[in-house]
């Protein structure tokens, strides 16, 4: 790929031909504030926060503007600063000020941008504040939709379209009445939404927020236990509890994507009905037993059933190591090849 050299605020940086100014900046570790851009999605150029001055005369939107060799970009030009600040002030004036109790607090892109452009109470007080009061849509069991926090960046819409090709949501109405809506403005749970949560993950504020989310204390890299695709996951753990699942962006299979089961279907792990002790049937009833009792009984019975009187059914859910040992046990200890599993179902 051919390289071009551009200058951003006096720094000469190298960029790939075809990159946008914003991509070039990011690739070189430079921050240009932005809200509606997401690396997985095509640039929309709608929030106008990433505005820059190009070649000393032209206002350009850095997430849409392709790089050109020799291009000179200023992110601190006074006109650019003014537009950017006013734009962010307009968004903040339209946004609830409930940061401390907000799900996005600390990872909110609006907070980051507001801080960067220097929003002050005095500046903000000049504005007429009016936060839209639309009831929160709590119909989905895994996430809530709070339109009052929505900044209409459209990342969710583009995620559902460009990445998921589901198109459960789109813009409805126009102007200040615009909101992100399902077909017929039905609750999200009654829409075509497949609850994959990809939009929730990408929402820069908390207009889409996982229900009852808990920040994990640590994350463990693993593989999803549902279908055969084998998506990489990051299991979020607090104490001895799995409290979240995120897609592993480094995994070549899913590159961070997950489906509804993979992302939200983890609560079986710490379910109270999990088997915790061996059970032995006595008088037609399964009763709790010790491992010693159970192992003794099983070993005794199996010893008397060696050869083709015995069969084992392994599982497509358990690990290679588990399966290997089960077939080894069946063949080497029980002396039979009566081993199969549920591959055919």
């Amino acid at each position: 790929m051919s390289k071009v050299t551009i200058t951003i605020d006096g720094l000469q940086i190298s960029a790939d031909q075809g990159m946008t100014v914003l991509e070039a900046a990011q690739a070189n570790g430079l921050y240009i504030p932005n809200l509606c851009n997401h690396p997985d999605l095509k640039p929309a150029g709608l929030c106008r926060v990433c505005v820059v001055k190009m070649d000393d005369w032209k206002i350009a939107i850095s997430c849409k503007q392709p790089v050109k060799d020799g291009m000179v970009i200023s992110t601190e030009d006074p006109e650019v600063q003014q537009i950017r600040k006013n734009t962010v002030e307009l968004i903040v004036a339209d946004h609830p000020m409930t940061c401390l109790t907000c799900e996005a607090d600390g990872k909110c892109e609006l907070q980051r941008v507001a801080h960067y452009v220097g929003i002050t109470p005095e500046g903000l007080n000049r504005y007429r504040r009016k936060v839209r009061a639309i009831p929160i849509d709590r119909s989905n069991p895994f996430f809530d939709v709070d339109h009052s926090k929505c900044i209409l960046c459209g990342i969710c819409v583009r995620t559902c379209d460009e990445l998921q090709n589901i198109n459960a949501i789109d813009y409805a109405q126009r102007g200040v009445a615009s909101f992100i809506s399902t077909l017929g403005a039905k609750p999200i749970a009654d829409s075509r939404c497949e609850s994959c949560g990809e939009c929730v993950v990408r929402c820069p504020v908390a207009a889409l927020a996982p229900k009852g989310a808990q920040e994990p204390m640590r994350e463990v890299k693993s593989i999803c236990a549902y279908c055969g695709v084998g998506c990489g996951v990051m299991l979020g753990v607090r104490g001895q509890k799995v409290v979240s699942v995120q897609g592993d962006r480094d995994n070549p299979v899913n590159k961070g994507s997950l489906c509804v089961k993979g992302r939200f279907g983890y609560k079986f792990i710490n379910h109270p009905e999990r088997l915790k002790t061996p059970l032995i049937k006595k008088n037609g009833k399964l009763e709790e037993a010790t491992w010693d009792e159970a192992l003794e009984l099983v070993a005794d019975k199996f010893s008397k059933s060696k050869g083709d009187k015995f069969a084992a059914l392994a599982s497509a859910r358990i690990t290679n190591e588990d399966n290997y040992l089960i077939q080894k046990f069946t063949r080497a200890v029980m002396g039979t090849n009566n081993i199969d599993h549920c591959a055919r179902l």
Partner: peptide, 24 residues
């Protein structure tokens, strides 16, 4: 303000802000 398509912030929220100031 009514006819703004609403996709970009300066037009969507800016016209609204101007209008509210003028109303005031």
């Amino acid at each position: 303000e009514e006819e703004s398509c609403g996709q970009c912030v300066p037009c969507r929220l800016g016209t609204k802000q101007l209008l509210e100031i003028l109303n005031d």
